[in-house]
Nucleic acid binder design. Structure first.
Lengths: 226, 226
DNA sequence: TCTCGTATGTACCAGACGGTGAGTTACGGA
DNA sequence: TCCGTAACTCACCGTCTGGTACATACGAGA
């Protein structure tokens, strides 16, 4: 799994003398730029983010952004790729194989729920990228293997559930994943307009348990109804 | 209220001589600016849209944008308000009262599905506004009465369904609306990243019927499962 | 200790950007 | 027919923006 912290090991082979504080450190500088840029792009969108603003929040200078990334757009792409890479690493931890189908399904939905709630910044980046029609993400290596984990686990659960005669068979794993994603993403991505219109904060901790159960009930009922 | 169509009647009392083509027409100019701005903001987001670009696509000049709206931000707010106003008008047409609860529920979900699919530009504006944390929409009069129709109709259906012993009673109308909205909005708003990752175009006409049925099954199963 | 490439800082630029000052013309009422 | 105002045109402005030329300091290897 990718270590989330900038100061992680960068195995150059020798795990020997690691200077605690170097005045010059390409990796640290790069990581710092990425971290600040991620926050800034997630906060204001691609067009709304300012290279100067990112630079001001850096311990280094704007020049370094261009030195390491080449330009605003390439920096944005790097931010996206890092974000997707981290998410993939996290998603692979799911282990619900040992549960019986209905419980496994509910558990998977719940974990996805938790996962999305824990990464609102990522959801914002995804929304922003959708505004741009995913043109920066198209053909990115960061997507490789991103689809597999979520859908594979789900496929296995559905297969077992169908074998036991518990689940309907005209809904495929991707359909179910779409429903779960829709619910989880919507809660975060559309939080503000939903709140403005319906006066409900979908992320209000007080209703979290209810929302989580709602999602579980939803997918379980859907699959167990003929 | 401002007439939505540029060439509509402008009831000056006398319905008499209506100049078919005036060289100067405040309402037409305003409407044209709004239309072009709507397309531009929906396409590129608030920060990404350019006042000059909007002006170039106008038969009038940039100066008129400032004359009628005051500035970029006010223009954006006007675009949002008009868009929400139009959506409200459309939503009030739903009539499913005469159907039995399960059929009514499925019909309402289907109509919402159709409705969202028919207005991708609106969904984009909503996504954009969420990126900005709905700050432009906060306290806007355009929201007044927007929540009522959707939820009221749903409430009535649920109430009838519960009275008939068909529906569970621990899921409220807003929960159901949230689920329906999540599904419908997600399909459009996250179309591009979903496609990039899972290679499924959620708006592909070939799978439209399946998706529409999926949503109906989802909410019906959820409410009819104890 | 020297050397050379990588990493960094400073100062600056050209063009795009949102916005405006000031004058001009069409229109509708008297 | 004339006049006052709403609607409109044109040229312009100051600032911000992404991006860069150039000088320089560090530090690993010889």
């Amino acid at each position: 799994m990718t270590a989330p912290r900038p100061d992680s090991e960068l195995g150059t082979g020798t795990a020997a003398v690691r200077p605690v504080e170097r005045t010059r450190d390409a990796d640290r500088t790069r990581a710092e730029i990425l971290a600040v840029a991620t926050a800034e792009f997630a906060d204001r969108g691609y067009a709304g983010a300012r290279v100067n603003e990112i630079a001001d929040k850096l311990s280094t200078t704007k020049r370094m952004i261009y030195y390491y990334f080449g330009g605003k757009e390439q920096l944005y792409v790097a931010v996206l790729e890092q974000a997707y890479g981290r998410i993939r690493a996290l998603e692979q931890q799911v282990d619900v194989e040992h549960l019986e189908p209905v419980a496994a399904l509910r558990e998977l939905a719940g974990l996805t729920f938790d996962h999305h709630e824990a990464h609102p910044e990522f959801i914002r980046l995804v929304s922003i990228e959708n505004i741009h029609r995913a043109e920066h993400l198209a053909g990115s290596p960061a997507l490789a293997g991103l689809a597999a984990p979520a859908v594979d686990v789900l496929s296995a659960i559905l297969q077992r559930g169908r074998a036991d005669g518990l689940f309907r068979d005209d809904v495929d794993a991707l359909d179910v994943h779409q429903v779960i994603s829709a619910f989880c993403v919507f809660r975060t991505a559309n939080r503000h307009t939903f709140r403005a219109i319906f006066d409900r904060d979908m992320l209000d901790p007080a209703t979290r348990a209810h929302q989580r159960r709602l999602l579980g009930d939803l997918v379980v009922a859907h699959l167990t109804t003929r």
